[in-house]
Amino acid sequence: MDRHAAPRGDLLVILRHPPHGTSWLRDGLDAALVAAAFGQTVSLLFQGDGLLALLDGQGRGALGQKGTAATLEMLSLYDIDALFADTEALARLELRADELMLPVVPVDTTRIAAMLASHRQVLVF
């Protein structure tokens, strides 16, 4: 795919951990929200088990954690609407993009590589 077709932005946050069990997802989303609040253009890429964050109907974590569904619902308030899902992760988890709680654009590895180049900065959580 043409590298110039990749979405551009100041910051690409890659989320690779599921919503419960660790605080990685929450910490990554916090970094994304703060960057957006600072006026940066932020893209989110859900990769691996990070995709599970987008499953609908999530409650609080069993361990008293707040969960991340509420944070994800706030993303649009922060103008974070460039959301991407790794097609390999979608296939592995047998999920379709249209059954997730937020609209995401499926991206393959070639496109992900282009996104890494087209964002000024990348943070991986």
């Binding site: 910051l11 970094a31 703060v34 940066q40 900065q121």
Partner: peptide, 20 residues
């Protein structure tokens, strides 16, 4: 300090290297 400092570093420095 706050996370804003991390974002600021990303803008201000030539390289921000992560160790996870």
């Amino acid at each position: 300090t706050g996370l804003g400092q991390l974002i600021d570093l990303g803008q201000r420095c030539d390289r921000l290297v992560t160790f996870s």
